[in-house]
């Protein structure tokens, strides 16, 4: 599963400021291929900001990161998706008035090619591609367990289903790294447990997972390694059991952080 020493994502000294606020200051970390890497920290620590930088929604103003051997210092979102980073959003961002199936089909955009001409003529290759897109989308719906709802508008799905749909849509882009921003937020214990199983399956399929989560049990049970952010700085990193007993981490969570 893990190929030791092989890094998929390397951050070196990544910083991001909003006015006077340092949302991230000098964060460095390495994520290995095939692991589930947890990112935790109190509210406002900069976790989502880090995701936004990795997916090109924000431009970093210090440091750099490299992904799968390519260095990115400022980049458009679609190029990062192309490179193989897919994400979900903390406050779910589906395409609300499109069906579940169509949402995932949009995720296939990146790996398919049909243009205007193909759309107008629907020649053999175009039809084949369109069929493949629909088939793959259905498979993914089944994979995350919501195929019953393929023709339901995304916004009419339950909260847990929306979270799953978002994961399926991200998987449709064939990512190397799947970045999940609090996927268990608002889920009950059963839903969280099935999410855990799903994430395990995804990891076993060879996708590296970067996970922001507040649910300590989920993090402890799932992650190979964890990094802790506080006020934009990495204050600890290591295997979950180790990090949990780190005095700096305890202090940050109790509210005594710098």
């Amino acid at each position: 599963m893990t190929h030791p020493g092989e890094h998929l994502l390397k951050l070196s000294g990544v910083s991001k400021h909003f006015g006077g606020l340092a949302a991230l200051s000098g964060v460095s970390l390495h994520i290995k291929r095939g692991e589930i890497y947890g990112l935790i920290g109190p509210n406002g620590a900069g976790k989502t900001t880090l995701f936004n930088i990795l997916t090109g929604l924000y431009q970093l103003d210090g440091g750099s990161f490299s992904f799968a051997g390519t260095s990115f210092s400022c980049c458009k979102p679609h190029l990062l998706a192309q490179a193989g980073i897919a994400r979900t959003f903390q406050n779910i961002r589906l395409f609300p008035n499109m069906t579940a199936l169509e949402n995932i089909m949009v995720g296939r955009h990146l790996r398919t090619h049909s243009g205007i001409w193909a759309a107008l003529t629907r020649h053999a290759a175009a039809r084949r591609e369109e069929r493949e897109i629909a088939q793959r989308a259905l498979e993914l719906l089944r994979y995350v367990g919501i195929h019953r709802h393929s023709h339901t508008l995304a916004k009419n799905l339950s909260y847990g289903e929306q979270r799953r749909l978002e994961i399926a849509r991200a998987l449709a882009t064939e990512p190397k790294l799947l970045a999940l921003d609090e996927p268990a937020a608002g889920m009950n214990a059963t839903e969280t447990e099935s999410l855990r199983v799903l994430l395990q399956t995804i990891r076993n399929s060879g996708v590296t997972v970067l996970l922001i989560e507040h649910d300590v049990k989920l993090i402890m049970g799932l992650c190979d390694r964890v990094a802790v952010l506080d006020y934009g700085k990495k204050i600890a990193e290591g295997v979950p059991a180790e990090v949990r007993n780190d005095p700096a981490v305890i202090a940050a969570y109790i509210g005594g952080g710098t």
Binding site: L94, M98, E130
Partner: peptide, 23 residues
């Protein structure tokens, strides 16, 4: 079509569309 879906995705949520790899 693929292009039509991309248009609608942009209409629905441009940020999410770009994160899904739509130029």
């Amino acid at each position: 079509s693929r292009i039509g879906r991309a248009w609608m995705a942009i209409r629905e949520d441009e940020v999410a569309a770009s994160a899904m790899g739509i130029n």
